[in-house]
Design a protein around this nucleic acid. Structure first.
Length: 578
RNA sequence: GGACGCGUAGCUCAGCUGGAUAGAGCAACUGCCUUCUAAGCAGUAGGUCAGAGGUUCGAAUCCUCUCGCGUUCACCA
């Protein structure tokens, strides 16, 4: 029951009739893609506004205003329409009757679950890969934003009907794993009683590896190293990864995140996917041996001109072709990542989303190229880049030192401010904007803190039900014709915008829009609440008027419901009391 | 030097894939608590949308160039 959709359908019908009545030849579908019915910026312009006349102007070679005047008579006759007028360069503004809005509220309350249903996703499959942090240590501050963003986007897409797979790629191969193994072995020796002065530069110094050392002693005793070196390293690798991935999963759970699929890089390498990938690319003549030009400008110090196996990613808009094999003959990260993306394409049978940190921005175009090449352009991949988060404590930067292993972990942040605060604040900025996360501000109980502001609105709704001595669930939808004040109608209008906001957020892959919607809804509600302070007649509970009280409480219920819908998508618990 | 992103009120940021007079919060100033939570609300003031061109009925939004900030730049992951 999306009002905007209902009237857009009616407009489409009018347009269709107009076209056939006048034997016009314009491309109907082309017009439809441009046709909009939107809430105007200013409420003075009515409830909805369409660009119908402006887009037709080109095809009919008439001025927009002339065309608009041809339509307004028809639009005015549509059910529920109060006024229609032409304004500005040719907008057609439509004002709906109070009754229409009253019945909107009714249908919202009587279809709590379905009123914002949409067919946007329509069961289409989509795979979203996020976090994918190296399994060499616990998640830290830098991973938090991508984790929250990816997770919110995933549930947003699920909400609008996509079949979503949430995926974590475990980089359990490559040189950082060798470092991990060596670091763990030191902890193993330490656990056996050997004194470790300091973890050497280049290895992982974090305390969490002590647990790995301990586990190794428990499982293999003191003679682990009597095995063949390759076997030792494999055993240590497995135990280390087990321990660390358990820590990571547990931290994610505390943040409210459960991934559907964990895929191992090592398994991609040892399986047949790499060969498959190469043969697909070879068939398309996209692989060759060649010499890359050094990067323009500053030349890397140890640049070595060398023939290597290359993928023609420049055919697909990348700046240069990309290497598939390292100088030691092993596959590059990119080569296995291509195979991994082929794997995702095959499993998903739908579009892909990757969530990356800003430091990987240079990597995007080659992955786009790979996906395009491997899917013959049939699969689209949208890479969302999350910019830096500046951790602050009352305006001053929190010091982090990776070298000592003394960085702020995700777990620390959850301990300090809680999951709900992290999730909301991380989404109060567009993903490509950098964000300040101030430990003091985000826990402040003031209007300056959006989490608090929205939660307070929800708690206030609940407190009103309490004062009225009713249970929210017992409030029943009525015809609501007694809700007539400007403020009440405006609130209903804004709630009616929810399905539209949801769809736009999903379409654009921008979950932050939900936060802004919730903040604005809360603001409208706080505003109306306070109006009752100045003028008793605006109070929700009117002592000698049961019917009006019921209607107003229902409006409050609709606010609470909508806030909960939004918070649920963000995986944030609504608060009942503060 | 190349690539990508960003540049909107004093500060922090929205701006609905091109719409009407560019919007919030903070800070500043002025009001509102015997009342459903003042942890809030109302009002005032604040703008060359970095700059210059272009595209069209119409540009903060799209294109080109310039300036500034950030990330990144064979073989790492």
């Amino acid at each position: 029951m999306n009002v905007y959709k209902i009237y857009l359908d009616q407009l489409t019908q009018l347009l269709f009739n107009f076209k056939s009545d006048n034997n016009l030849t314009f491309d109907f579908n082309e017009i439809l893609t441009k046709l909009t019915l939107e809430p105007p910026k200013s409420l003075d312009h009515g409830d909805m506004s369409t660009n119908l006349a402006m887009i037709l102007s080109k095809y009919l070679s008439l001025k927009p205003i002339q065309i608009a005047n041809m339509f307004i008579g028809y639009i005015a006759k549509l059910p529920g329409v109060d006024e229609v007028n032409v304004a500005g360069p040719g907008f057609i503004n439509i004002k709906l009757t109070e009754k229409t809005w009253n019945s909107c509220l009714k249908s919202i309350l009587s279809n709590e679950k379905k009123w914002d249903a949409t067919d946007l996703g329509n069961g289409k499959k989509i795979n979203i890969e996020y976090i994918s942090a190296n399994p060499t240590g616990p998640l830290h501050a830098g991973h938090t934003r991508g984790a929250v963003f990816g997770d919110a986007l995933a549930s947003l897409l699920k909400e609008v009907g996509y079949e979503v797979t949430k995926e974590y790629y475990i980089n359990d191969a490559g040189s950082q794993i060798d470092k991990l193994v060596n670091s763990a072995l030191l902890r193993y020796e330490e656990c056996l009683g050997k004194k470790i002065k300091e973890i050497p530069e280049g290895l992982y110094p974090g305390e969490y590896l002590k647990e790995v050392g301990q586990k190794l002693v428990e499982q293999f005793g003191s003679d682990l190293k009597s095995n063949e070196p390759s076997k030792v390293s494999e055993l240590v690798r497995q135990v280390s990864l087990d321990v660390i991935m358990k820590i990571i999963r547990n931290d994610l759970l505390r943040l409210g995140i459960e991934m559907d699929v964990y895929t191992s890089e090592k398994e991609i390498i040892s399986g047949s996917l790499l060969e498959k990938t190469l043969s697909i690319l070879e068939d398309k003549d996209l692989i060759y041996k060649g010499i890359l030009d050094p990067p323009k400008g500053t030349k890397p110090k140890n640049w070595e001109e060398r023939e290597q196996l290359l993928f023609k990613s420049s055919n697909f808009g990348d700046d240069t072709d990309r290497a598939l094999k390292k100088s030691d003959g092993s596959w590059t990260y990119f080569a296995t990542d291509m195979a991994y993306h082929l794997d995702k394409i095959n499993r998903t049978n739908g579009n892909l989303i990757n969530v990356l940190g800003a430091d990987h921005i240079g990597y995007i175009s080659r992955i786009n190229a790979a996906v395009q090449a491997l899917s013959d352009g049939s699969i689209s991949i949208d890479t969302k880049v999350c910019s830096l988060v500046n951790l602050l404590e009352d305006g001053k930067p929190v010091k982090m030192s990776k070298r000592s292993g003394n960085f702020v972990t995700l777990s620390d942040i959850i301990d300090a401010v809680g999951k709900d605060v992290i999730r909301f604040i991380m989404l109060t900025r567009r993903n490509d904007q950098s964000l300040d996360f101030d430990f003091k501000k985000v826990t402040e109980k003031s209007k300056d803190n959006p989490v608090f502001y929205v939660q307070y609105a929800h708690a206030r709704c609940n407190s009103i039900f309490k004062s009225a001595n009713v249970l929210e669930k017992d409030l029943l939808a009525d015809n609501f014709s007694n809700l007539t004040t400007k403020e009440e109608i405006e609130l209903i209008k804004f709630i009616s915008l929810w399905p539209r906001s949801l769809e736009l957020a999903a379409k654009n892959h921008e979950p932050h829009r939900l936060c802004y919607y919730l903040i604005e809804l809360s603001s409208l509600f706080h505003s109306l609440w306070n109006k009752g302070k100045d003028d008793q007649s605006f109070k929700f509970i009117i002592d000698n008027n049961k019917k009006l009280t019921n209607s107003r409480l229902c409006l409050v219920k609709a606010v609470a419901m909508t806030i909960r819908k939004g918070l649920k998508i963000l995986s944030i618990e609504p608060v009942l009391e503060m």
